[in-house]
């Protein structure tokens, strides 16, 4: 079946089209959902190659479940982000014990030297990633979904299969922990006192 504007078709309808043999629907779903899956996995794992593997794995699970998908029962994106979160959690558990200490973050460029803004930004983002990696797993996941991926609390609750109150608690504790982990790095990271 051909369609003129894939963007106008809901995710679950695209999935049903794919299950019925429409290969273009797979391309549309990949373009629509893949980048966010990769981003989520990258932030959770802090490793690009592993994040790509997780993305491929998560999408493969989507292709496999397509024939059994019941339209209207669940959001495809929420289901996929939950699968991604679980795959990341599995990998994090397997590699547990090998985390880098926040104190090992390379010192950012000295702000007194001629500023290389790109390097400075890279240092800030690396510091954030390492601080995230130091958080307990569920706090990290909630903070990433809320503050970096921009999901609302109800959707995060569905993805993590917990209540919205639990999401609020996790994100609040996660942010408090980040402010402790990044303490003392404000000037180094280029954030001046107000």
């Amino acid at each position: 079946m051909a369609f003129d504007d894939p963007d106008a078709i809901p995710d679950d309808a695209l999935l049903v089209l794919f299950a019925n043999g429409d290969r273009a629907a797979a391309a549309a779903l990949t373009a629509r959902l893949g980048p966010r899956v990769l981003s989520q996995a990258w932030r959770m794992l802090g490793d690009r190659a592993e994040a790509e593997d997780v993305t491929q794995d998560a999408m493969m699970r989507l292709w496999k479940i397509a024939p059994e998908w019941r339209q209207g029962e669940a959001k495809v994106s929420t289901w996929l982000y939950r699968v991604t979160a679980n795959l990341c959690t599995d990998r994090l558990r397997r590699r547990r014990g090998g985390t880098q200490d926040i104190e090992d973050v390379p010192e950012p460029a000295d702000p007194g030297e001629p500023a290389d803004e790109q390097l400075q930004q890279r240092a800030r983002l690396d510091a954030l990633q390492l601080a995230l990696d130091a958080l307990p797993e569920r706090q990290k996941q909630a903070v990433i979904l809320r503050h970096l991926e921009g999901f609302g609390n109800p959707e995060i609750a569905e993805i993590m299969e917990i209540s919205t109150e639990a999401v609020e608690s996790l994100t609040a504790r996660g942010k408090r922990a980040l402010t402790r982990l990044l303490a003392g790095k404000r000037d180094e990271l280029g954030y001046q006192d107000d």
Partner: peptide, 17 residues
């Protein structure tokens, strides 16, 4: 998405279909 990752994902979709 990087092109090679997109290609791998679509190859999986083809295989599943």
């Amino acid at each position: 998405l990087p092109d090679d990752l997109t290609a791998r994902i679509l190859a999986d979709a083809e295989q599943a279909a």
